[in-house]
Design a protein around this nucleic acid. Structure first.
Ligand SMILES: [Mn+2]
Ligand SMILES: [Mn+2]
Ligand SMILES: [Mn+2]
Ligand SMILES: [Mn+2]
Lengths: 236, 236
DNA sequence: CCTACAATTTAGGCACACCGAAAAAGTGCT
DNA sequence: AGCACTTTTTCGGTGTGCCTAAATTGTAGG
């Protein structure tokens, strides 16, 4: 319960958690392997060890679930990662596409003391540069009520609250197009069969239309501005 | 010449360098083992690998010397370590006895970009919280003209420019006694046979006498205030 | 139900960094 | 020079985390 786990172990747990953060199907072995960039066999082995340590639940050929203790560790790592990203952007002038790789290594090297001092210095932020919620030290995670841009119907208005940080190139592209966190968007027209989604970006006079590529629409999450009768999530 | 070395490798090189920083005898296998907290056999093996990589010179049963390339890496690590310590004290409110352990891990996790951004943010400091000189990015190291307090004759005046960070307890003790970097000291009387060294600490009115334990006198380095005919280094 | 095919686990190995014990080499003293 | 003692190296072995290739097991279609 106290001696530090290895970097690998920490990354496995974080990745298992991250998978269920925006979907609710649990992660499989091969998905875990893909995300971690290791062979399936490596995952099998590690999952067995994690199970022996009481950090995950797993039956042969089944999906992998975090135990309560595993979740606790995962949230600790997520907190570290996101606070570090915030620090890199706020204090060291990194751009939002550069921070992920750096935080991926630093998260394993910092102490609890470091993390808490850093959090205090940053003003205990509740979200990171990509809009991902930062768990508190006690493991509470701010609830975010947002939907993928790709799931919204025309007419829907909202502000961007999260952008997946998985693809740095996309982040660079979005920065170049001046699309940030808190940018206001209105869905203009939905792709008919496979055509692009059109979105009105920005406020009033400065608004412009923007053709959103599919991959981007999957990565950008929007929180409704008007209470718009709940959320109008599109089918299929 | 480019792909990152392992943490262990980096620590070996740093430790080899550090040994010659304040003395000029090269380090032996067993000294290296002691400092790194590993078995002698581990050092033998690693030194062979370092030699194969062209980072150290070594003949069987001889001392270990850094090659030019090894020195370059070592200085990079020393720079990282000391900049990180400075950051921890200046920005995160660590005390000078807490920073060493934290920096020891972080130094292997940060990127070159991180280090240079950090250095810029700190104003490119030339010394760390313990007064240790910080090598420049190009590997130039500020020369410090200081002597151990234990080597000074009575009457010698100067300011403290370095305090060894090896023993956190000593650092805590010195902080408690309000002895810092840049504190002015005058040697009052030298230990007769094994008695304590007496030093006048502080300026003018606020001056007080202080019995310096042997171990402390070895760890504190003083730069002469008056040009005092070079430095009067005591014998034995 | 049975069979192809995909997902997963098992088996056997490798690199790294460490260990203790044993062998070898250097050193200092008579 | 010879011998005791210390230092260093060599040897065999461990744990972790990864790999490829070969079983195994699950599943969906006929
Ligand atoms: Mn990581
Ligand atoms: Mn992020
Ligand atoms: Mn280190
Ligand atoms: Mn220091």
């Amino acid at each position: 319960m106290k001696s530090r786990l290895s970097s690998s172990t920490e990354d496995y747990l974080k990745t298992i958690y991250a998978f269920t953060e925006w979907q609710d199907t649990p992660i499989t072995s091969s998905q875990l392997a893909t995300r971690l960039g290791v062979a399936n066999s490596s995952v099998s082995e590690m999952v067995r060890k994690l199970k022996d340590m009481g950090l995950v639940d797993h039956r042969p050929y089944g999906a992998v679930h975090l135990t309560e203790e595993g979740l606790r560790v995962a949230l600790t790592m997520v907190r570290r990662h996101r606070l570090l990203e915030t620090f890199l952007v706020n204090d060291l002038g990194y751009s939002w596409d550069e921070v992920h790789v750096e935080a991926e290594r630093l998260e394993h090297a910092v102490s609890d003391l470091f993390v808490e001092r850093l959090a205090a210095r940053l003003g205990n932020p509740e979200r990171d540069p990509h809009g991902d919620p930062i768990p508190s030290a006690s493991g509470d995670i701010p609830r975010i009520d947002a939907h993928r841009l790709s799931e919204l119907d025309p007419g829907h208005e909202g502000t961007i609250t999260r952008i997946s940080d998985e693809n740095p190139e996309m982040l660079r592209y979005l920065a170049h197009e001046r699309i940030h966190l808190d940018t206001e968007v209105t869905v203009v027209r939905r792709k008919p069969f496979g055509g692009p989604l059109v979105v009105r970006v920005g406020q009033h006079g400065a608004a412009r239309d923007f053709d959103v590529p599919d991959e981007v629409a999957e990565a950008v999450w929007v929180e409704s501005t008007r209470e718009h009768a709940g959320c109008t999530v599109g089918g299929s």
